[in-house]
């Protein structure tokens, strides 16, 4: 598992390194005046990254597969929470902080453990309300509070 990940990661880092090298070479024409332009540092780093990723690839070839630890990985709650977080982020500016945070917390609490609806509702409401009031009213911060169509 780790070895497979390492190989994919090695290729990905190699690509990133090459991209940075190419992109920094395109920068050089725009710099003037100084002996060392803005391209040198990222270019050197790109080379180092390429070399390191090649080494990582060979290390992953030679290393023997580690002990097969069986972990029970809980994909379902994770994916639900991940999706909830994504929706939360995307709707934050449109629907506003208070409603989105409340819904997000409710969903996550219940995903983690399906019990005690009332406690979840109270904690979610309290969290979103308290954070909003403290931040916007007391500290005068910027936070989209309510839906934009209000």
């Amino acid at each position: 598992m780790t070895i497979k990940f390492d190989r994919i990661a090695a290729v990905a880092f190699l690509v990133v390194g090459v991209l940075f090298m190419v992109a920094s070479k395109q920068l050089s024409s725009t710099s003037y005046g100084s002996v060392v332009g803005p391209d040198i540092f990222p270019f050197i780093l790109g080379i180092i990254l390429v070399l390191l990723s090649i080494r990582l690839f060979f290390e992953s070839l030679t290393s023997s597969p580690g002990e097969g630890k069986k972990e029970s990985i809980q994909y379902k709650p994770f994916l639900i929470i991940l999706a909830a977080t994504l929706v939360y982020i995307l709707t934050l500016e449109i629907v506003g902080y208070v409603i989105t945070t409340f819904l997000f917390l409710c969903i996550c609490f219940q995903t983690m453990e399906r019990s005690k609806w009332v406690t979840s509702l109270i904690i979610s409401a309290a969290f979103s309300g308290v954070v909003y009031v403290l931040f916007v009213e007391v500290l005068k911060g910027t936070l989209p509070g309510w839906p934009i169509w209000f």
Binding site: T85, F104, V131
Partner: peptide, 15 residues
């Protein structure tokens, strides 16, 4: 309970 703690950490990070 982790049930309450973890989602709140996500919410605090986003906030």
């Amino acid at each position: 309970p982790k049930k309450y703690l973890l989602p709140m950490i996500i919410a605090i990070s986003i906030f």
